[in-house]
Amino acid sequence: EDTPTSDDLEQFAKQFKQRRIKLGFTQADVGLALGTLYGNVFSQTTICRFEALQLSFKNMCKLKPLLNKWLEEADSS
């Protein structure tokens, strides 16, 4: 899998936040949902820092596919 560039991550974080708000989920909701879906719960702080691009590049890269999958799930339900 290609490592995203920081531009990709920035773009995704922006879109993710917009979609999340549009779908009516809080950052805490997302963190809990990730726990339900993938077995690891993320704190509201982590989601907040992802959206604000304040996590390390490595952590951003790790979270992106999970959040992307969550968006697909949320969109289809």
Rank of each mutant, 00 (worst) to 15 (best):
M60P: 00
S6V: 15
S43D: 15
P65L: 04
L71A: 03
W70M: 02
T5E: 08
L34T: 01
D75M: 12
S43F: 03
K22S: 08
D7L: 04
I47D: 01
L32N: 15
D29C: 03
C48I: 08
K64I: 06
P4R: 12
G35R: 13
T46Y: 03
F50G: 01
W70R: 02
Q15M: 14
E73N: 07
G24P: 01
W70L: 03
L55E: 05
N40A: 11
F25P: 01
C48E: 15
A33V: 05
A33H: 13
K62E: 13
E1W: 07
T3D: 05
M60H: 04
T46A: 07
T46C: 05
E1C: 11
E1I: 10
A74E: 10
K69F: 06
L9W: 04
N68Q: 05
T36Y: 14
F57Q: 12
F42M: 12
Q54P: 00
S77W: 09
T5I: 12
I47A: 01
K17R: 11
E51W: 00
L55K: 04
F42E: 10
W70N: 04
A28V: 06
E10R: 15
T5M: 11
T46N: 04
G39A: 05
K22D: 14
L67Q: 01
P4Q: 14
F50N: 00
N59Q: 13
R20K: 00
E72H: 13
I47K: 02
A28Q: 09
S6N: 11
S43V: 02
A13N: 00
N59A: 13
T46F: 05
E51V: 00
K22E: 14
G39F: 02
L32M: 04
Q18H: 07
N59F: 12
T3A: 04
W70F: 09
S76G: 13
I21K: 09
I21Y: 03
Q44N: 08
I21M: 13
R20F: 00
V30F: 03
G31W: 06
K62P: 00
N59V: 14
S43Y: 03
T5S: 12
E1L: 09
T45K: 14
T3H: 12
R19L: 05
S76M: 12
L9N: 04
V41D: 14
Y38L: 04
S56N: 08
V41Y: 09
Q15C: 08
L34H: 00
E72P: 02
F50V: 02
S76H: 13
E72A: 12
V41P: 11
D2R: 12
N59C: 11
K22C: 11
D8P: 05
D8G: 11
A74G: 05
S6D: 09
T45N: 10
T45E: 15
T26Y: 00
A74S: 07
D75H: 10
S76Q: 14
Y38G: 10
L63M: 13
L63Y: 03
Q15A: 08
L55Y: 05
F50A: 01
L55W: 02
L53F: 10
C61Y: 06
E1K: 09
A28M: 06
E10Q: 15
E51M: 00
L55C: 05
F16G: 01
K69N: 05
Q11E: 11
S76T: 12
A33N: 03
K14M: 10
R20L: 01
G24R: 04
F42L: 14
V30K: 03
L53K: 10
G35P: 02
A52P: 01
L71C: 01
K22W: 04
T26C: 03
E72K: 09
Q18P: 00
F25S: 03
P65K: 06
A13M: 06
S76I: 08
E73F: 11
L23F: 04
L23T: 03
K17G: 02
Q27F: 04
S56W: 01
D29L: 02
L66Y: 06
K58D: 10
S56D: 09
L9T: 05
G31M: 05
K69Y: 15
K17Y: 04
R20A: 00
G31I: 04
W70P: 01
L23H: 06
L66A: 08
L37E: 12
A33D: 05
K62Y: 06
I47P: 00
T36K: 14
P4K: 15
L71I: 04
L71T: 00
F57P: 10
T45L: 08
T26Q: 02
D8V: 08
F25T: 02
K58W: 06
W70Q: 01
Q18M: 10
I47S: 01
D2Q: 14
S43M: 03
P65R: 07
R19A: 11
T26S: 12
L63A: 02
D29F: 02
V41H: 14
Q54M: 05
D29M: 05
Q27P: 12
G35Y: 08
G39W: 01
A13T: 06
D29H: 06
V41S: 12
A52T: 12
D29G: 06
N68P: 00
D29Y: 06
E10H: 15
E1F: 15
A13P: 01
L66G: 03
F16I: 01
R49D: 13
R20V: 01
S6R: 15
F50W: 01
S76V: 13
A52D: 13
Q44F: 04
P65N: 08
L53M: 13
K14E: 13
K17M: 07
R19F: 04
Q15P: 00
Q44K: 12
L37Q: 12
L63W: 03
E10P: 07
K64V: 08
Q11N: 14
T3V: 05
L55P: 02
Q15V: 08
N59K: 12
A13E: 02
L67K: 02
Q54E: 11
S43A: 06
V30H: 03
L63T: 03
P65C: 14
P4C: 15
A33W: 12
F25L: 10
Q44V: 09
R49Q: 14
E73G: 11
L55N: 02
P4V: 15
S56Y: 02
L37V: 11
C48H: 12
C61F: 06
K69V: 06
V30L: 05
F16P: 01
G35H: 10
L66E: 02
R20D: 00
S43T: 13
K22Y: 05
D8R: 06
Q11V: 12
L55A: 03
K58M: 09
S6M: 15
K58A: 11
T5V: 09
K58Q: 14
F57A: 09
K17C: 04
Q15D: 12
L23I: 03
S6G: 11
W70S: 01
G31P: 02
G39E: 06
L71S: 06
L53W: 03
G24L: 01
C61N: 09
L53R: 12
T5W: 05
L34Y: 00
A33K: 06
L32W: 12
V41L: 08
F25E: 01
K62R: 13
C61H: 08
D29A: 06
K64D: 00
G35L: 03
T45M: 08
A33S: 09
L67A: 03
I47M: 03
E1T: 12
E51C: 00
T45G: 09
L66K: 09
D2E: 11
D75K: 10
D8I: 04
P65G: 09
T46D: 15
R19G: 05
N59G: 08
K22Q: 12
E73K: 15
E72R: 10
N59R: 15
W70H: 00
N68E: 15
F25D: 01
L53V: 12
D2F: 08
Q27C: 14
L63E: 01
K64S: 06
E51N: 00
Q54D: 11
P65T: 10
T36I: 07
F42P: 04
E73V: 10
K14T: 09
M60F: 04
K22P: 00
A74T: 12
F50Q: 02
A74V: 14
L71V: 10
F57K: 14
E51P: 01
L53Q: 11
T36N: 14
L9C: 06
A13K: 02
T36M: 09
Y38A: 10
T5P: 08
R20N: 00
R49V: 00
S77P: 13
F50I: 02
L23D: 01
